[in-house]
């Protein structure tokens, strides 16, 4: 799984940086956005992409032993679970009547 070349290291480092930036965006979005539904946007998309980017970077930078396959598995898990949990939470809040901050005044379920 190792890819011990300068190009691989450079791409890996870039992916690592991109991942950290996306995760930072997810964090700031979680703190800054006004209501649960908007925060779910940030958490589902930015975190999923950031996590997958960092996992891909680690794959390029060289994973120990047989870890490459596990990292791919982990990336698939994150990719599947991120949007699903966001949707589950949003549906739960929507059904229990948390009104979204909306221009048209918000509406219940």
């Amino acid at each position: 799984m190792t890819f011990p070349s300068l190009v691989g290291d450079a791409i890996g480092g870039a992916l690592l940086l991109v991942g950290v930036v996306f995760l930072l965006g997810g964090t700031i979005g979680l703190i800054r956005l006004p209501d649960l539904y908007s925060r779910a946007h940030a958490a589902s998309k930015c975190d999923t992409v950031g996590a997958c980017s960092i996992l891909a970077a680690l794959l390029l930078l060289g994973a120990p032993g047989s870890a490459g396959l596990k990292i791919v598995l982990l990336a698939l898990l994150v990719l599947a679970s991120g949007p699903t949990t966001a949707h589950a939470l949003a549906r739960c809040a929507f059904r229990s009547g948390v009104a979204p901050v909306a221009k048209d005044g918000g509406e219940g379920p």
């Binding site: 006004p34 940030a42 998309k45 979204p100 901050v101 909306a102």
Partner: peptide
């Protein structure tokens, strides 16, 4: 799609002037 979506959300979040106007 998801990479584009994440970039879009990143743009909205990091722009200090942006105000989200969510609609359902």
């Amino acid at each position: 799609h998801i990479v584009v979506a994440a970039s879009q959300v990143l743009w909205v979040v990091l722009d200090p002037r942006s105000r989200v106007a969510p609609v359902v």
